[in-house]
Nucleic acid binder design. Structure first.
Lengths: 356, 356
DNA sequence: CTGAAAGCGCTTACAG
DNA sequence: CTGAAAGCGCTTACAG
C-alpha cells in the first residue's frame, strides 16, 4: 500500500535551485554560480540572462549548500564585552547587523564577561568552534593586543572599532575622540570656566588616552595650566565617576566644571554633586561623552559628545565583508566626526579667580 | 605539471567526519547519526561505543551538512522591537543566547522599528527568507496577535516572553507583574501614603494591564478609593512619564507618591518633580518597574521591581528548542517571581489627609 | 536494533 | 568565456 504524500508537503512549494535558474537562462549551473558570486569572467549578455532568471524565479542560493561545498561560512563573529550599560553595544550591533544583511552574512554573537583571566582561551575556543570567516571587535576588546595576536595566528581576518594602535593596514574605525574632547573642553572654557576637572576612562580603552589628550590640548590653547589634582582616574562606570567626583569636589578649591570621559561617569558626578546639595550648572557644570540614553534622562540632562557609532560599525563590518569576499579594500583612513550636544548640565561661569 | 598542495591546506587538519566516528566505533554512519541525534532505537552498548568515539575524536557534526540534508535549520529567530532603552532586550538576548548555545542552535536577530504600518509584511518577509525553525517574541511583539496568527499560518513554532492572553498550550513565559505591582503599591501605603498616583504603560504591552490591576488591588486591600484623576496614561517612554507626572503634580491635591509602570517613566517623573523644585522623597515618593541601569544611576536612585528576565528568556527559549527537537514539552504554568528593590526614591509619609 | 543507497544544492578543480 | 564531474558531510526513506 502506498502512502499518499502528506498534505503539508504538497502545499510547500520547493524553493528554486541553481538548476532551475540554469535551465531558464539556458546555461550551465557553473555559469549561474559565477554570476551570483560576482565573478568577473562572464560575458555581459550571459550575465544579464542569468540575472533575469534569478529575478524571475526569486532565486536565493541555499546557504547550507554553499557552506558545505565551499570554503566560506558566511558568518561574522561579533565578540564583545557584555556590559551593564548596553547602549554603545546596541549601536554596534545595529550597524554590524545592517552590514551583514547587506552582504549576505550572518552575525554570530559572542558575549564575554570581563575581567576574564582565561580571555584568550575563551576567545580561541569561541573562534575555533564557531566556524566563522571574520570577527568584529568593538571597544574595549579591539584594544587588546593579545586578541589580535591570536586572530592573526589563527589566520582569521578581523576589524576593530577602536582607535588605531600602530600603523598597519589592518581594518579599524574610529572617531575623532581627541578633537571632540578638545571641543567640549573648549566649550566650557568659552563659558568662563578656568578650573576644569577631568575624569579619565578605563585605561584599557584606547579612547581614554585620546580623550585625555583633547582636554590637555584645549587647556594649552587657552593658556590654562594643567593641574594634576584636577585629573582623576575612572573606569567608565557610574560608581567610578562618583568616586572621582567626590575627590574633585573635596578639593579646597574644587573645579567649576568637570569633563567626564563618558556619560555614566558624568551621571555619577551629578549624583555626587546633588548629594552635596550643589546645583547644576549653577555650582558645577558637567559634560559627558557618548550621548547614551541616560544623558537625556537625568536631571539636568547632560551636555555630551555624540559619536556616529552605528555608522562606524556598519562601515567597518562591510569593509571586512568585502575583504572576505576577496575584494582589495583600503583601510579607512579618516576618523569619523563627533559633535557636541549641548544640554542643561553646563552653564556660563562668571570669570572670578584664575588658577594660572 | 602537478601543483603541490599549498602550505595552508597542509597545516589545517581536517575536522573529523561522521565516517571517522563510524569507523572508530565499528558501526555504520547511520548509527552514529542516530546516537548524535538522540534517537532512541540504539542498543545501549552500541551507543556507548559511538559516544566514546565521538569523545576521542572531538567530533562535532557539520552544521551545513546537517541543514542541507535534513529538514531543520538549527536557527531560532529573535524578533524584537529595536528600542531606545535596550536593557530589557539585552537581558532577553543574554537568556536566549544561552539557551541556543546549550541546544546547538544559532540565534538570528531580527530588529524591527515600531510603529510600523507594514509590520506583518516585514515579519513575513523576515521569517520566510531567513530559514529558521522557530521564533522568540519578547514584549511587546509577543503581545501582537497578528504576528501570532501569521506564524501559525506559516506553521512556525514560536515562544513569547509576555503575559498569556488566552488559554492554550502555546509557549509563553511571564513574571508575576500584577503581584509585583500590588507589592510595590502596598509598600508605599505602608510608608503612610494615601494619595497614590499611577502612570500606566503602553497599552500594547500585556504587562500594562497587569501592573494596573496590581495597583488597584492594593488600594482596595487598604480601603483606599480609586480616583481616576490619579491614573494617567503613559507609553513607557521617559517623555510620556514626564507628561503624566506634570498632569499629576498640577492637581490641586497632588499625589504624595507615584507608581510609574516602568523606570523610564519614573525617571521622567523625577525629572519633572525636580524641575518644580520638589524634593524626593520628601515631597514625592516615586517607584518604577524593571530595575534598568537608569534606576540606580539617577538621583535619588529608584525603588523599583526586578524581574528575572534573563532566566525567563532562557527558560522559554530552551523549551522552544526542545519542542523543535520533537520532545513533548509542557508549557510553563507558573509565572516567575519578581521582587521589590528598595532605594532612596521612596520615603515615609506622615499620614495627614485621607481622600477617602 | 542496524545498515546501504540516494540525494540535499551548491563550489571546487579541472578541462577546453 | 563556459561547462561536466566530483564531492562537501550529513539525513532521509527504505529495507531487513
Amino acid at each position: 500500500m502506498k502512502n499518499s504524500v502528506p498534505p503539508k508537503a504538497q502545499s510547500k512549494l520547493k524553493a528554486p535551485t541553481i538548476f532551475d535558474v540554469a535551465k531558464l537562462a539556458g546555461v550551465s549551473i557553473k555559469t549561474v554560480s559565477r554570476v551570483i558570486n560576482l565573478e568577473s569572467n562572464v560575458r555581459a549578455s550571459t550575465r544579464e540572462r542569468v540575472e533575469e532568471a534569478v529575478e524571475a524565479l526569486d532565486y536565493r542560493p541555499n546557504a547550507a549548500a554553499r557552506v558545505l561545498s565551499g570554503k566560506r561560512f558566511y558568518v561574522i563573529g561579533l565578540i564583545y564585552e557584555n556590559p551593564n550599560e548596553f547602549s554603545y553595544m546596541q549601536k554596534v550591533l545595529n550597524g554590524a547587523l545592517k552590514a551583514c544583511e547587506a552582504g549576505g552574512y550572518t552575525l554570530l554573537l559572542l558575549p564575554l564577561t570581563l575581567p576574564n583571566p582565561d580571555l584568550i582561551d575563551d576567545v580561541q575556543r569561541f573562534v575555533s568552534q564557531s566556524r566563522l570567516d571574520g570577527v568584529v571587535l568593538p571597544a574595549p576588546l579591539g584594544d587588546f593586543s593579545e586578541i589580535q595576536r591570536l586572530l592573526n595566528e589563527l589566520n582569521i581576518p578581523y576589524a576593530r572599532i577602536t582607535p588605531k594602535t600602530e600603523a598597519g593596514d589592518d581594518l579599524s574605525v574610529q572617531c575623532h575622540d581627541e578633537q571632540a574632547s578638545f571641543d567640549v573642553t573648549q566649550f566650557l572654557i568659552e563659558q568662563g570656566h578656568r578650573r576644569l576637572g577631568f575624569i579619565k576612562g578605563d585605561p584599557i580603552h584606547g579612547a581614554t588616552e585620546h580623550r585625555y589628550r583633547g582636554y590637555i590640548r584645549a587647556l594649552q590653547a587657552a593658556g590654562i595650566g594643567l593641574h594634576s589634582e584636577f585629573v582623576r582616574d575612572g573606569m567608565f562606570s557610574f560608581e567610578s565617576g562618583k568616586t572621582a567626583a567626590r575627590a574633585l569636589l573635596d578639593l579646597r578649591e574644587p573645579p567649576t566644571a568637570i569633563v567626564a570621559s563618558n556619560d555614566d561617569m558624568a551621571a555619577g558626578t551629578i549624583f555626587e554633586a546633588r548629594e552635596r546639595g550643589l546645583s547644576i550648572p549653577g555650582d558645577l557644570s558637567v559634560v559627558g561623552f557618548d550621548d547614551t540614553p541616560i544623558a537625556s534622562h537625568i536631571w539636568p540632562p547632560l551636555t555630551t559628545v555624540r559619536q556616529p557609532i552605528v555608522e562606524m560599525a556598519e562601515a567597518i563590518t562591510s569593509l571586512l565583508i568585502r575583504r572576505l569576499k576577496g575584494e582589495q579594500v583600503e583601510p579607512l583612513d579618516q576618523p569619523f566626526a563627533c559633535h557636541v550636544v549641548t544640554r542643561a548640565s553646563t552653564g556660563i561661569r562668571a570669570a572670578e579667580d584664575d588658577l594660572a
